[in-house]
Amino acid sequence: MFSNCGGKIKNLAKIIFWFGLIVGVLWLIVSLAQYANGREYLEYSSAYGGSSSYSILQASGDKAYTGIVGIYYSIILLASSIVTAWPLYGFGIIVTHFENASEISMLEADTNIQIEEIISTEEIRHTEEAKNEEL
């Protein structure tokens, strides 16, 4: 769960982007069709006062008004999915960079420990050789 966090964040950003894009485009198409079917009856919608005697006109106007609202919200969905996905993907890149840097620093630390062990064993061997030469 806690390994490869940067990759998971980047995948989440991709999912948010593609989900928002697909749903937003589909919603926009449906809303445009709904608006186009009843735009001439828009003045009879409930939002503009309605029509008490012509309920069919009012229903058609309500569908057109719902289409307009759907157009606005689908555009907002498209924009918000793009605006949300970019910084989230960038954050995933940053996390991946620091994960890689952390792994490199741990490898360097392991290498330094191994070098120190080699140097200390060499020093011990040299001191023992020096003691043996003195005897």
Rank of each mutant, 00 (worst) to 15 (best):
E116N: 08
I16T: 13
F19E: 05
Y73L: 12
L78K: 04
G24C: 06
A33F: 13
E123Q: 10
G24P: 04
D62P: 10
S31H: 12
T66D: 15
T127F: 12
S60L: 14
L12Y: 11
I113Y: 09
G38H: 01
M106D: 11
V23Q: 05
I76A: 10
A109W: 01
G38N: 06
F98W: 15
G49V: 06
F17S: 03
N11F: 01
I15M: 12
I68R: 11
E133S: 06
D62K: 05
A64R: 07
A64Q: 12
A13T: 07
Y72V: 12
W27G: 05
L32C: 13
Y44R: 10
N100T: 10
L77S: 02
I9G: 02
A130P: 03
I115Q: 04
S81C: 06
S55Q: 13
G61M: 01
E117Q: 13
F91S: 11
I82P: 02
I71R: 07
K10W: 00
G38I: 03
I16F: 11
F91R: 10
Y73K: 00
D110T: 12
T127S: 12
S55A: 13
S3E: 14
E117R: 15
T84L: 07
S3W: 00
K10S: 13
A85V: 02
L135W: 11
K14R: 09
A64H: 00
D110M: 09
I29H: 01
S31Y: 04
N132S: 12
Y44D: 09
E43T: 14
I119S: 12
Y35T: 05
K8V: 08
L135K: 13
G7W: 03
Y35L: 05
L32Q: 00
I71E: 09
K14L: 01
Y65W: 07
T66G: 10
I68F: 02
G50T: 06
A36P: 07
Y72W: 08
I75L: 10
E99Y: 04
S60H: 08
H97F: 07
I93T: 12
S105I: 02
I71T: 00
